[in-house]
């Protein structure tokens, strides 16, 4: 059983009278332990692909099986639970809560998993240690550099032990040194822990970190090295 299986997934956005076909009958499978880089120009449908894989959105038609479970027809409550338990998100904008300390940001998924506060803090600190930021645990996001903020975001994505790590342009707001640091963390997680990782990017040198590259254009997959 494949970890991710998309069958003829179509996503259509409606803007008044106009319809935009963001995804045009995508069929793709991703196995456990893969490191996939998704590439393509803006508007090619790669972000829509990520949103659907990340259970932030549901397809207009077609099927999406995550660990063999059909998630394409789930409601908002069910999708939230899938996101909480199976998916770890990393964003271009880091998306940390500005008024929460580093460890408080990391424990966020655990709050919605119903874990008690003591266990939450322990796990959060453990994850910060993993990304090398234990000594920054009490810092607020604004006191951290871009690279550090993204590492906090990675700790947050990992804290609830997800099946998939999804990163949408994770290096888009970082200098090249930090970018490489971040990508090396992904690589290490993939190689040492077998964590399935999907990274969306438009930078070829970033995409080179992946073992498999998928290219999007006009809502279709035009090439897939896997």
């Amino acid at each position: 059983m494949k970890l991710i299986k998309l069958e003829k997934v179509v996503k259509i956005y409606k803007f008044g009278e106009n319809e935009v076909k963001a995804l045009d009958s995508i069929t793709v499978e991703i196995d456990r332990g893969e490191f996939v880089c998704v590439m393509g120009p803006s508007g090619s449908g790669k972000s829509t692909f990520m949103n659907i894989v990340g259970c932030l959105d549901t397809p207009t038609s077609g099927k999406y099986y995550l660990e063999g479970i059909d998630v394409s027809t789930m409601n908002a409550e069910e999708l939230a639970e899938i996101r909480n338990k199976k998916i770890g998100f990393i964003f271009q904008q880091f998306n940390l809560l500005p008024r929460a300390k580093a460890w408080e940001n990391v424990e966020l998924p655990l709050i919605y998993a119903g874990i008690n506060s003591k266990e939450r803090k322990n796990k959060a600190l453990e994850m910060l240690n993993k990304v090398g930021l234990l000594e920054r645990a009490e810092y607020f996001p604004r006191q951290l550099s871009g690279g550090e903020q993204q590492r906090v975001a990675i700790a947050r994505a990992l804290v609830n032990n997800p099946s998939i790590l999804l990163a949408d342009e994770p290096t888009g707001n970082l200098d090249s040194k930090s970018s490489i640091e971040i990508m090396q963390i992904f690589k290490k997680l993939n190689e040492e822990e077998g964590l399935t990782t999907i990274v969306v990017t438009h930078e070829p040198d970033i995409a080179a970190f992946g073992k498999r590259q998928i290219r999007f254009l006009d809502g279709k997959i035009i090439s897939d090295t896997g």
Binding site: E77, A80, R83, N95, L97, P109, Y112
Partner: peptide
Amino acid sequence: TREIGIRMAVGAKPKD
């Protein structure tokens, strides 16, 4: 709004 989005992305249900 953004905070709500972050919370939802990491698994907050609408009822939460």
